[in-house]
Design a protein around this nucleic acid. Structure first.
Lengths: 240, 240
DNA sequence: AACGCTATTGGATGCTCGACCAATAGACAA
DNA sequence: TTGTCTATTGGTCGAGCATCCAATAGCGTT
């Protein structure tokens, strides 16, 4: 052996790359283990660097937490509803949105929202970031609803209100997903989609059918298949 | 001055009384400042005793946290739906339930649920208590729905499912209450009641009117007036 | 090939927390 | 009143945390 000590070798990277690396690790840490696990020591350990380095890029720890959440949330939003919509109608996009947002793959994000909202009580910087992301999610859904209205696909009383209602139900489901999830009745699992159908003036079951299709065809934004919705509940054929 | 030191005098109480005192303080602490503020030192300080005393009654801190949550949650449930229903129909009781559960007075409890659900990730003992309370709340609502069904007041497809749906919407609203709450559209505020009306087969706006009455008459279980629901939205006259 | 900039290290400091324990003093019974 | 039991104290200990800083070594420039 040339040396008995671990002989730590430094790897020097550009500030930009290093910073991105840190935020990236913190973001996945937030999604998998929770925001409170984002600590100087922990992130440093995962990246095989010294804690001092992290605090060099983020002199105040809370800043990193906020950044991590912001990154995770905006990336997920991009998966749910891409900023520039791919081929297909607004209705199809809405179906893809629900396919992902009600699938098992969304559980981590759902939990992260819960986590972030709670932690916001004690961390003002994070709170601001949460408010920003909340607005971003709401606005992007609202926009999609407006587009769908323009396309004649649906007619919400107020797109902005409908967007909030959808988010409220999704959040409610997410909260319960953390404990229940197993043996959950289809009538509960489908609440979000059913709410959307009602508020958008869609025929009962029509959107639900589209969501099922989206799940089946793996089109549910973001590659691999997410879990099917509620298997027992076969939706009635769309009326329109 | 007889002594220069603060001259701390001990107050000796019965274990039962002291324990209750500790749990009580911890419970209100949980409601007002959050479960993570329940620390040996903090509770001791509030009670003007030494930290060692707290850890004497609760050798493991997590136990106190769980106990505090359980107490707060079960007391609130008793306010929402008393175990033995006072005079009045099940429908009236349901209206009183919503009057309180959607009022400003419920905000703390709503936040506590959020807090507890999140913290459950890291604290197994608390997680079990949360599961117990979740079941208790669900079961008591289910029972009330069954009673109302027996009284012919409403006809839910499945009382147990309807109970969960109501809770999901309430939780969703609670989650958003932590950030929004201001300038919230009536169509959002009323979501819980509207959901109940739909799932219970009640005429649109009928329950909402009863809830408004309950708020106005201050009958909203638990003394003082809670904030009115959505002031702008005058519900249509009940059809039945 | 030598230099200078700065990304990175290694260590120190002080904080809050849960947990543990011998000593003490209040209350109740004899 | 005296004595015993135990509720309560007061202090200690180690772990994990953010934050700060002087020294070091990697890399692009010259």
């Amino acid at each position: 052996m040339s040396s008995s000590a671990p002989a730590k070798q430094r790897v020097r990277k550009s500030p930009k790359a290093r910073r991105a690396e840190i935020v990236g690790r913190a973001a996945t840490l937030a999604l998998t283990e929770g925001l409170e696990c984002i600590t100087m020591r922990r992130v440093a350990e995962d990246l095989a660097v010294r804690p001092g380095l992290i605090s060099h890029y983020f002199p105040v720890a809370e800043e990193l937490v906020a950044e991590a959440f912001g990154t995770a949330a905006s990336e997920e939003l991009e998966e749910l509803i891409p900023a520039e919509r791919p081929a297909g109608s607004a209705l199809d996009q809405l179906a893809r949105f629900f396919a992902r947002a009600t699938g098992a793959r969304y559980d981590d994000m759902s939990r992260l929202w819960l986590n972030a909202r709670h932690l916001s009580r004690f961390r003002p910087v994070l709170a601001e970031r949460v408010a920003v992301q909340e607005a971003a999610w709401r606005d992007r859904i609202t926009r999609l609803l407006r587009e769908g209205t323009a396309e004649g696909a649906f007619r919400p009383a107020d797109p902005a209100v409908a967007a909030i209602q959808i988010l409220v139900v999704l959040d409610g489901l997410g909260v319960h997903a953390n404990t229940d999830r197993s043996n959950r009745p289809p009538a509960v699992t489908n609440m979000a989609v059913v709410t959307a159908e009602r508020e958008l003036g869609l025929p009962e079951g029509s959107l639900l059918a589209l969501v099922h299709d989206a799940v089946a065809s793996g089109t549910a934004n973001g590659a691999a298949a997410s879990e099917p919705l509620a298997n027992g509940a076969v939706p009635p054929a769309p009326t329109a």
